[in-house]
């Protein structure tokens, strides 16, 4: 045990037995909370940016780099607020990103590959790990939610595309198919039919940012960074709001209605 740890335990005022028990209790909490947030973050991402993260042929230069980091930042930012505000632990976003990536691979393996017959190539997921770690590090350096949102939120989005390109670049090689050029990702979407997901349903770059030549992805990244600043601010406060415990004064009648108090008899009043 380091001197710093010893001092923390001393300051906390916990007797040795309570320290031991609290450590065991912490592991139970970590296990339960990890599973809970794994499901919550994954569900949130599937509901808000599902197809962009599920399918390799949705990972375009315009919308994927914009909407995915914005959505994936939300619950990790709330977790970051909770861990920092109550425990001064700068691990909330990293933890959220780790849980999300694990949950995503579990669904890709069991849901998409084993159950739905899709190859792994169809569902290589995006990750926010790099941006999340950078944002946690910035929080510890600047020790301010406002500055973390300003710099951390922006860096979070900035790192999204470069940190995903090593795992996805192979899917954007050009191939020829029926006399037309296609990316490998386009071909994967075409070769493995999704009856309910026709090609036109993809919300992807249609050439509207043509004036930026090949820099579409960085224009979108910059825009995502701006949005992530504000999104981080909002979700930081949502995290704090939902982790606050308040006691609300209630009437005797209400407590009786809830079964928490004795009945109020008119006769006894008299």
């Amino acid at each position: 045990m380091s001197p710093n740890t010893r001092e923390i335990l001393q300051v906390s005022g916990l007797p040795p037995e309570a320290v031991k028990l609290s450590r065991i209790w912490e592991w139970f909490v970590v296990a339960a909370v990890a599973l809970l947030f794994m499901g919550a973050i994954h569900l949130h991402v599937m509901l808000t940016v599902g197809d962009w993260d599920m399918f390799v042929d949705w990972k375009d230069r315009q919308f994927w780099v914009l909407v995915v980091p914005v959505s994936m930042l939300m619950i990790p930012a709330a977790l970051q607020a909770v861990f920092w505000h109550y425990f001064r632990l700068p691990i909330g976003m990293t933890l959220g990103a780790v849980l999300l990536l694990i949950a995503t691979w579990i669904t890709r393996i069991f849901g998409w590959h084993i159950w739905g017959y899709f190859p792994f190539t169809m569902g290589v997921p995006s990750t926010i790990l790099a941006g999340a770690m950078a944002c946690d590090a910035i929080l510890l350096i600047v020790r301010s939610s406002l500055l973390t949102s300003t710099f951390g939120g922006f860096v979070f989005a900035l790192l999204f595309y470069p940190s995903n390109w090593p795992s996805l670049a192979a899917y954007f090689l050009p191939v020829e198919h029926q006399g037309m050029v296609a990316s490998v990702a386009d071909m994967i979407g075409y070769v493995y039919p999704r009856s309910g997901t026709p090609e036109y349903i993809r919300l992807i770059e249609r050439g509207t940012l043509r004036t930026y030549e090949g820099s579409t992805v960085w224009v979108s990244t910059f825009f995502a960074g701006i949005i992530c600043i504000f999104m981080h601010m909002i979700w930081w406060r949502i995290g704090l709001a939902f982790s606050t415990q308040r006691f609300v004064a209630t009437s005797k009648r209400f407590r009786h209605f809830m079964g928490l108090a004795d009945a109020v008899h008119p006769a006894s009043k008299a």
Partner: peptide, 12 residues
């Protein structure tokens, strides 16, 4: 690896 929740909360 260090005390995680309760001792840190109390110290804070």
């Amino acid at each position: 690896r260090r005390p995680l929740l309760i001792p840190r909360y109390l110290a804070l």
